[in-house]
Design a protein around this nucleic acid. Sequence first.
DNA 1: TTCCTGCTTCGCCGCCGGCCGAAGCATCCC
DNA 2: GGGATGCTTCGGCCGGCGGCGAAGCAGGAA
Lengths: 237, 237
Amino acid sequence: MSDPTAPGPLAATAALMADPARARMLAALMGGDALTAGELARIAGVVPATASGHLARLAEGGLIAVHAQGRHRYHRLASEEVAAVIETLGGLAARLAPPRPWKHGEAAREARLCWNHLAGRLGVALHQRLTGSGWLTPISGGWAASDEGRARLSATGVDLDRAMVASRFACDCMDWSERRPHLAGGLGREIASAWLDRGWLRRLPGTGDRDVLARRRVAITPAGLLGLREGLGLAAA
Amino acid sequence: MSDPTAPGPLAATAALMADPARARMLAALMGGDALTAGELARIAGVVPATASGHLARLAEGGLIAVHAQGRHRYHRLASEEVAAVIETLGGLAARLAPPRPWKHGEAAREARLCWNHLAGRLGVALHQRLTGSGWLTPISGGWAASDEGRARLSATGVDLDRAMVASRFACDCMDWSERRPHLAGGLGREIASAWLDRGWLRRLPGTGDRDVLARRRVAITPAGLLGLREGLGLAAA
DNA sequence: TTCCTGCTTCGCCGCCGGCCGAAGCATCCC
DNA sequence: GGGATGCTTCGGCCGGCGGCGAAGCAGGAA
C-alpha cells in the first residue's frame, strides 16, 4: 500500500469523481447492475465517444471493472470499497450543497440499493434490529452472526454459506440519507438478493436515463412487510 | 438536504479534493491543528497568492472553517464528517495506487491522529477492546458506554461529560491503514486529548513541510504502555 | 507616524481536459 | 457477402483552472 496522505493518489482518485459526467455514471452504477457503454453515455448525457474516454479513465483508475461480452462492454463498480466511498462522499456533498427540494419524494430514502445491499430507512432499521438484538455481534472490523441470528436469517431465505465466502461477512456502510450505518459485505448482498428473489422487495421502475437515483429505489411488498415482521420482528414503515 | 446522487454536488465536492495542492492542505489539516494560510502555502508548495485562492474555495465549499485572529487566519477541517471522508477516500486511493514503498516506516501505521481522535493500529485495537468487552454497546448509529465502560474510561482520565455534549458520543471512522474502524465522535476526541495531556501519548516531531503525514504521528510513552495495560487491559504493541 | 508582516485581490499566461464529429474496428444478423 | 450496431481512436476546438508576480489592504510593532 502506498502512502494515502501522499496527495498524489488522493487527488487523482478524487479527480476521477470530480467530473459531472463521470459522477453521473458512478451514481448510476450504484444501482448494482452492470451497464453497457451506450447506456452510460445516455445517462451521462454525452456522446459515446466522450463516454468511452471517461470509462477508460475510470477503469484505468480502478473504480470500475469492465467485462466484454460480444459487442457489448459491461461496466460495474470495482468493489464494495468504491461503493462505500461514493456513498460517503455523496452524503457529505448532499449536506454541504445548498438545500434543494427532494425531488424523489420519500421513496428513495425509504428503501434503496447501495451497489448490492440494502440502504435507506429500511437498511438502517435492519442494521439496528440485527445488531441491537444480539443476532449480530461485533468482531474485529465487522459483525459475526450468533446462532439465533443464523437461524432467523436462514428462515427468511438468506443463504448464509454464500455470505460467508465474501471477503467480509458483514460490515458497515454509512448511509447518506440516514447518517447511520447499514449492512454491507457478503451478508448484505445475500439479504438483498434473497428478499428480491422471494418477492419481499421489488425494484421500482426508473423514470428515465437522467434520474440516476431511479435505478436504486426498491419497495417492500405486502408479503415482505409480513415476512419482516414475523421473521425478524422488524416493523418496517 | 439535496439529492446526493445528483451528480452536481458530488462532483463539486470531489473537485475540491482533486487538486494536488488542495489535497496536501487537507492532508495536513488531518493532524487536527488549525494552521495559518502561510503555513498551508508552504505545505502545499505554492506561493501565498495561490494558496489563498485554494483556501477560499475550500471554505466556500464547506470543507474547512476559517477563524481570523489578528493578522493571521487559522484554517481547520470543518467537521468530523469531512475528516471521515478524507480518511476513507485516502484509504481507497492508497489501495488503488501502484504500491510504493512505505516511506514513514511503521510509525504512522502504529498510532496517529485522524483529525482529533486516535487512528492506526492503536486506534483500531482500542476500538476492538472497548466494543469487544462490552464497555461500549451498539446503539443506533454508534456506541453507548456501559457502567463498567464509563468507570474504566474515567479512570484513564477521560472526561465523559465533555464527550457526551458532542453531536455524536461515539461512532466509527474507517481506518485506511488497518481497514477496520477506529473510534470517532466526542469520546474519540476526549480520549486522544486526555491521553496526550496525561503524557500517555506524545506527538512525534514532523520532518518538514512536505511530509503531510508527519503532523499526525503520535507514539505511546512508557507511562502510556503501563496505563493502557492496567487500566484497559490493552496490550499495545 | 512609519514600517513590517500576513493575507487577499487582480491581471495575465499556459496547459490540461472535456466535448464533439468523423473515421476505424469488431461483432452480430440476414 | 453486405449491412447494421456498439464501441473506440483520432483530431481539433475551447473553456476552465492552476500558476505566478505585483499591487492593495489590514493588523501589529516601534
